[in-house]
Computed example of a mutant assay.
Amino acid sequence: MALRLKSQWHKEESERSLEEIGGAIAFNAWRLGVDKAINLHSQHFAYRDDAQRLAVVAEYLIFQALAVERMLYESITDEQRRELVTAMVLKLADHYEENSQSLLGAGDYRTSFIETFNQRAGEYAEFGYTDEGPTYPFLRHLGYEIQQAMGDSQVNRWVIDQVMDSDAPELLKQLTRTVKNLFS
């Protein structure tokens, strides 16, 4: 079943702030990240527990935030991009914390999400992103981080291939359409 995303504003004539756009992208990114984590399970990759599943969702969220930053590189100014991505990451951190507390109990999951985002931002900065989308190393890094989050079990051995060949391209297609629609 296809995932339905909310990528249209109710009152299209209203001007939206970058914070509002970042929040809307984050809402859809959360849904996409969870959908792809569920898809991995349906493809017979195994999670040990909910913490592991949330770690995978976090990697998809971080990947999406960094992809949005690259998508908009030539469309808006550096300051606007920074404002939008910051708003998006903070909203993603809120979603992550709320769901982590619901599944895992009390804790400061928001801080760990933001710290992981900052670490990954430095790592992904080494990889290219073209008009056609992320380069092979950009995608492979996502697959690698998801494999690390899922552990080295024999069952999860080929998760990098699943992420690179199927899940990430589909996610990017939906994310790109969402970003384009929210900016139009």
Rank of each mutant, 00 (worst) to 15 (best):
Q174Y: 03
E126G: 05
E170K: 11
A106P: 01
T178Q: 02
E145H: 01
T130E: 15
K173A: 14
F117K: 00
L182A: 07
L103G: 00
S102C: 08
Q162Y: 07
G105P: 13
Y96K: 11
I146F: 08
Y96E: 13
Y136W: 10
G107A: 06
K173L: 15
S100H: 01
N99I: 11
D165H: 09
H95E: 05
Q147Y: 11
E126F: 02
G105F: 12
V179Q: 01
L182Y: 03
Y144E: 14
T178M: 01
A125Y: 04
R157Q: 02
P134C: 01
V163Y: 08
T130N: 13
T116C: 05
S100A: 14
L103H: 00
Y96N: 11
E98M: 04
S112K: 14
H141R: 11
G128A: 10
M164Q: 12
E98A: 10
H141G: 02
E123V: 08
T176Q: 09
R157T: 00
M150E: 03
W158N: 13
Y136V: 14
G105K: 13
G122I: 00
G128H: 04
S153W: 05
Q101P: 07
E170L: 08
S100D: 00
A168T: 08
T178W: 00
D167S: 14
P169K: 04
E123R: 01
Q147W: 13
N181G: 04
Y144D: 14
L171H: 15
G133Y: 06
L103K: 08
N99D: 09
Q162I: 03
Q101M: 15
M150H: 06
A125V: 05
I114R: 12
Q147M: 13
I160E: 14
T116L: 13
A106Y: 04
L172E: 12
Y124S: 02
T178I: 02
L142Q: 04
D108F: 07
P137L: 03
S102Q: 15
V179C: 02
Y109D: 08
V163N: 07
Y136R: 12
F138I: 09
Y129D: 14
Q148L: 14
L103R: 08
N99C: 03
M150N: 06
N181W: 09
Q147N: 14
D165S: 10
S153C: 07
R120K: 07
Q119N: 12
V179P: 01
D165T: 10
R177L: 11
S112M: 12
Y129I: 11
Q119D: 12
